[in-house]
Design a protein around this nucleic acid. Structure first.
Lengths: 212, 212
DNA sequence: ATTAAAGTAGCACGGGCGTGTTAGCATGTG
DNA sequence: CACATGCTAACACGCCCGTGCTACTTTAAT
């Protein structure tokens, strides 16, 4: 038996995925073509197609990698210890990690948009994982605002909160944050980052106190 | 002097624009190609290009027509007299006219999305007219909720409201509605129309009473 | 050294696109 | 009727795309 040289396929695929992510940031998901990604990575299309049979596989993989990367990035940033002058400020600084307020997070948002675009055309069976993650984060934020102890287990936060007001305002906040992100990128002239931050803070202040 | 047959250019352009709108609904703004629109209208590309020198002119025109059409449609729907069991219900039914809650308004939202996509790449100088229109609508809604008389002049509603709470909550509502629309189309499995309507109602109920 | 498998590079086909050009058609005036 | 003029249709060029296919190179076991 003769055995040729071996290549670490996973490592290759990662390399391609990184190139594809650069392409997404430049041209959007539609720019992720077999030829384009191969060129970005400095490969030939023939080589690339040993690791991804067709464009669909390539895009599906880069979306998977992007989702995981973003998830991890956000989780670590959100979990970072922070000091804030008030409860609302602290929560606002957490939620702001999701908003495209600066260049770095605008990049992340562009990647999120690619994921959303992909999931819209290829709906995952069990619902969007990203959506439930974000909902859990907002749920946690509202719970803290209403004086509840934050749950330590991340899986725990995926379940509905017993406090109905928490559940309601988590939905309101989640929706609001989506809209704020959308306005920041779509009509940046109308909603500058500072105004967005103020708006966010106002909404958090509107969350009813736990006594009510 | 010999004079050939005359065609009504404006009428031709409208005809093409209608075909282009059908294309947008089918394939999005990116699908609005010279060839594609000509085929949709049953023309040759050569003919089409007597009315639009290039793709950019074609897209710019269809976006302009779409904007005007949507604007008019929404204005008439919103201005329709309505009876509602409560103030909040009445306002909610007005705001809901902007949301992609049913097939017809999902179509309108798809067209809005095309306009937004266009304006993001070709920012209008004086800011987006559509954005200010929507802001005015939300301003008006919040003003009514807080017991102010609605202004009859539409231009009047484009200016900031003297009541600071109206101005603040108009921004919150505007952002929230954008997010709700986005979630309805992007993650329809997570946010069914009925839940969206409930969420909207809850936000409207959170608008502080005029006394405060 | 030989060899077979794995990896690589590149070509070729068919198709869509924007756009420039050109030949033919219809039409209202002279 | 003849014709100048504006409309119509079609083609051609160059570019980018996905994908099937093939020849070439590298590698490790024999």
């Amino acid at each position: 038996m003769a055995v040729p040289r071996l290549v670490d396929h996973d490592q290759r695929r990662s390399e391609l995925a990184e190139a594809a992510i650069r392409v997404i940031l430049r041209d959007g998901l539609a720019g992720v073509t077999v030829r384009g990604v191969a060129a970005e990575a400095g490969w030939s299309t023939g080589s690339l197609r040993h690791y991804f049979r067709n464009q669909h596989e390539l895009q599906a993989h880069v979306i998977r990698v992007t989702t995981d990367t973003l998830r991890e990035r956000v989780i670590t940033r959100v979990g970072r210890p922070r000091t804030a002058p008030s409860l609302v400020d602290g929560v606002a600084s957490v939620v702001a990690e999701l908003l495209p307020l600066d260049a770095e997070r605008r990049e992340e948002y562009a990647l999120w948009s690619a994921v959303v675009a992909w999931e819209r055309q290829h709906p995952p069976e069990g619902g969007s994982v990203a959506w439930h993650d974000q909902r859990a984060l907002h749920r946690q934020c509202v719970a803290v605002l209403r004086g509840h102890d934050p749950v330590t287990d991340l899986g725990q936060a995926l379940l509905p909160h017993p406090d109905a007001q928490v559940e309601l305002w988590a939905g309101l906040l989640h929706t609001f944050v989506d809209g704020l992100a959308s306005q920041l990128v779509n009509t940046p002239g109308q909603v500058p980052p500072a105004a967005a931050a103020r708006l966010l803070r106002s909404l958090l202040e509107a969350v009813p106190a736990p006594s009510s």
